[in-house]
């Protein structure tokens, strides 16, 4: 196990690299200095307090929440159709159709944002919260589908057949058997989509018009050095919320796998 120990050290260093920015976030958010640098000057919570005095921040937060809730529900609902279809049926053009739906997973967001923007502007529409919802639904869908497909695939098909065989209709089979068993996957997909939408910047930046989301607001404030400590405080809150949501999502994902007696293969992707 000597090579194992070396690898372990490397893996831990790698985790430190991964977490370095996130761990520094609260350090400087609680540091009593406007300049983000060492040495630290002292402990303060005033940057968090200042957040309350930024009215536009709350508008942005409201926009972000509306967008994140709407697009996570839309993406999960649309994802349910696609995940069910792809894990259950063979249909003509399945490859290309699923490929198109999953494309935003690899497509640079700038391309998604620009092409949508061109179409919306071309149609003479005014950008607002709804246009961000459309874009976010598009990019959340592949993630929701990945999670939901895993949930559907770990579902033994004969469970549904058994319920149908025992006299239930297609709909009541779905309600009594399928839905409870994939529910953890649905919750997980909702939470992940919500998190993605809350954090997403590029599409929101180009499609929000005059109704900025939280990341867009943060971006606009980054130009003002004076604002940076409060932005870090805001970032700390956002990261904390994300971590909590992701932990809940992970809990549901695992419970879903355990529930149907499957084996955990790990990871959201």
């Amino acid at each position: 196990m000597t090579d194992g120990r070396g690898l372990r050290l490397y893996a831990i260093l790698y985790l430190v690299f991964l977490y370095a920015p996130i761990l520094l976030l609260p350090v400087f958010a609680l540091n009593d200095a406007t300049i983000v640098a060492f040495p630290l000057s002292g402990f303060t919570t005033k940057w968090f307090g200042q957040l309350a005095q930024l009215p536009t921040l709350f508008d942005a937060l409201r926009n972000s929440l509306i967008i994140a809730v709407s697009s996570s529900i839309l993406a999960t609902t649309l994802g349910l159709f696609a995940a069910r279809a792809s894990s259950r049926y063979d249909f003509a053009g399945k490859g290309p159709i699923m490929g198109l739906i999953m494309l935003p997973l690899v497509l640079p967001e700038i391309i998604v944002a620009m092409s949508l923007l061109m179409v919306l502007l071309g149609m003479g529409l005014n950008l607002a919260v709804w246009s961000v919802i459309l874009g976010h639904t598009l990019i959340c869908m592949p993630f929701a589908i990945a999670i939901l497909s895993a949930a559907f695939q770990s579902l033994d098909r004969s469970l549904e057949e058994a319920a149908y065989d025992l006299g239930e209709s297609r709909w009541s089979t779905f309600r009594l058997i399928t839905l409870p068993l994939v529910m953890p996957g649905i919750v997980s997909a909702l939470l992940i989509s919500f998190t993605i939408s809350m954090d997403e910047f590029i599409i929101a930046f180009f499609l929000a018009g005059a109704e900025p989301t939280l990341p867009v607001y943060i971006y606009s404030q980054l130009r003002f050095p004076k604002q940076i400590p409060s932005i870090l405080a805001l970032g700390t809150i956002l990261v904390a919320v994300s971590v909590v949501l992701l932990t809940i999502a992970e809990y549901f994902r695992r419970r879903g796998i355990a529930k149907v007696g499957g084996k955990d293969t790990g990871g959201f992707l």
């Binding site: 033994d156 004969s158 469970l159 057949e161 058994a162 319920a163 025992l166 068993l181 529930k259 007696g261």
Partner: peptide
């Protein structure tokens, strides 16, 4: 009525 190969016992 059917007894399935995997038994299809509803796990929940």
């Amino acid at each position: 009525n059917m007894v399935f190969q995997s038994y299809a016992i509803f796990p929940h």
